[in-house]
Write a protein that binds this DNA or RNA. Structure first.
Length: 269
DNA sequence: AGCTCATGGCGAG
DNA sequence: TCGCCCTGAGCTG
């Protein structure tokens, strides 16, 4: 679940459900207990996302900074609020709705200044209206690192994870091992604007779909199918399966401790 | 019951 | 580059 689109969707959902409502803030698991007690009963005044970081605002310079990491999960629901289980790190609840957070890498009370420091070390986010790809291009175009690694580097571009990384490179026919400095400006601009569109759709649908209409199973005369992460994709987690376009085998490799997926025939640029 | 794996990221070396 | 942290699903036995 947790790439940038998930976090932006969570920010939206929090504002809709809890915005300017007084909320019960608890930590059934106990690990966020003291901070929860400080906020309990206060109104949630805003919710923001930058890349994979979520910030829940409580008035005057108090924010809960949340990062789901690989395992973190949110459960949002309507009343009645179920009894909490012992892995719930953070629960927000009103009379009508609740949000349960489990397994995050980070859940901490931070100041405005600490929040700003997090923004400062993140790259531009395709999902933030005020961001564009300029700062990212400046780094990419000078880098001897592979474009596959650069897309996962949150200092370069914020919010892209392993799925969007693999999929956007496939959609542009780009070899993941190309070096950043060997990308052209038009290639980067195309990647950036494609990510804006794909990730916005990800926020809307709350899942990752990257297959163009002309390549859907229906359009290709094949049986319908949803990939096991919940969306429909070209290459992610499809190792050794046939490429939707050329029929060749999708390959996988380790890259910086993550699984990379690509079609060597379609991605030669 | 115990293993493996997963859409992340940090700090040590 | 490695080990570590967080949780839960899907295996294996």
């Amino acid at each position: 679940m947790p790439e940038g689109h998930t976090i932006h969707r969570l920010a939206q959902d929090h504002e809709e459900r809890f915005g300017n409502h007084k909320v019960r803030v608890t930590s059934p698991q106990g690990k966020f207990e003291d901070s929860a007690a400080l906020l309990d009963g206060n109104p949630l005044t805003s919710a923001e996302a930058h890349g994979k970081h979520l910030f829940l605002g409580f008035g005057d310079s108090r924010w809960i900074h949340i990062h789901l990491g690989l395992f973190g999960k949110y459960t949002l629901g309507d009343a009645p609020v179920p009894p909490p289980t012992d892995t719930v790190r953070l629960r927000l609840a009103t009379a009508t709705a609740y949000a349960d957070l489990r397994g995050p890498t980070t859940c901490a009370l931070v100041t405005e200044r600490e929040k700003q420091a997090i923004h400062d070390r993140l790259g531009p986010d395709p999902l933030r209206a005020q961001d564009d790809g300029e700062a990212a291009w400046a780094r990419v175009s000078r880098s001897r690192t592979t474009v596959a690694a650069l897309l996962m580097d949150q200092k370069v571009i914020a919010g892209v994870g392993n799925v969007y990384r693999a999929e956007v490179l496939f959609r542009h026919g780009i070899d993941p091992y190309r070096l950043g400095r060997d990308l052209t400006r038009p290639e980067w601009d195309a990647i950036w604007s494609d990510l804006v569109g794909l990730m916005r759709e990800g926020v809307r649908n709350n899942r990752i779909d990257t297959v163009r209409p002309e390549h859907t199973p229906e359009a290709m005369g094949r049986p319908p199918r949803v990939d096991d992460h919940g969306g429909e994709v070209y290459v992610y987690r499809r190792a050794r399966q046939p490429c939707h376009i050329c029929g060749g085998e999708i390959r996988t490799a380790d890259l910086a401790a993550r699984n990379l997926f690509w079609c060597p025939a379609c991605q030669q640029r």
